[in-house]
Amino acid sequence: MSRYIRSKRYGGTFFFTVTLKDRHSSMLVNHVDLLRESVRHVKSRRPFEIVAWVVLPDHIHAVWRLPKGDNDFSRRWQLIKILFTKKLKDKTHYKSSVWQDRFWEHEIKSDNDLRAHIHYCYLNPVKHGYVLSTCNWPYSSFHRDVKLGLFDLHWNGLLPNE
């Protein structure tokens, strides 16, 4: 059995997939307000930049950039998961464990790699059939990036040169 070794790079940029135990749940979008509160709280104490983020019913894809001299993305995810679970249990009296124990991480190594993972985040709701266009999925940093002029509202996953 192979043993996965997480990146130790300080100040790196990383792509993550974080998943609920129940892959048929819609808990994340049903309680997106609790997730947002949890992320804000952790971010205020352990800063990181959200480069891209999409919340789907049962999983999250995110691209984060950590501060220089910091490589502890695992603790950040742990705190987000703990806080979301606590808030969920307080609000709904949910009794079971919510998250899969682990998460998947990929260290971004180039501009092309970064662009591909941002696109992956933004196209994921379309891929799963939740919407026909990225602009129709409300639980994504895509809308922030449109306001910043980084994407056109009607972006379809292709750049002009592609």
Score class of each variant (00 low, 15 high):
R115F: 09
L158D: 04
F15Y: 14
L153K: 15
W137Q: 03
V39N: 01
R3G: 05
P125L: 05
R45H: 14
W104F: 15
P138Q: 08
Q100N: 05
K43L: 04
L28G: 03
S133F: 12
R115T: 12
E49P: 00
K81E: 07
K147P: 00
H24K: 13
Y122N: 09
L34I: 06
D70E: 13
N30R: 12
T19P: 00
T19L: 04
N112K: 13
Y4G: 00
L56M: 15
K68E: 14
K8P: 00
S110C: 05
M1D: 02
D72H: 10
L159P: 01
R40C: 07
V146S: 09
H31Y: 14
K95L: 10
H154G: 01
E107I: 11
H128E: 07
G157W: 10
F103G: 02
N112R: 14
N156I: 04
V54F: 03
T134Y: 02
R75H: 07
K95M: 06
K95I: 09
D70C: 11
Y139C: 04
L148N: 12
W137D: 05
V32Q: 07
S97P: 00
C135T: 06
H24T: 09
S44D: 12
V18W: 01
V42I: 15
P138W: 06
W53A: 06
K109F: 06
D145C: 03
H61D: 02
Q100V: 07
Q100I: 04
Y122C: 03
M1N: 07
T17D: 02
S44Y: 07
K81C: 08
Y10N: 08
I118V: 15
H154Y: 12
K86M: 08
L148T: 02
S7H: 09
P57Y: 05
S74R: 13
W99C: 06
H31K: 07
N136T: 05
F84Y: 14
N156D: 15
S7K: 08
I5P: 00
V39Q: 04
K43P: 00
D33C: 01
K21F: 05
D113T: 07
G129F: 10
V51L: 05
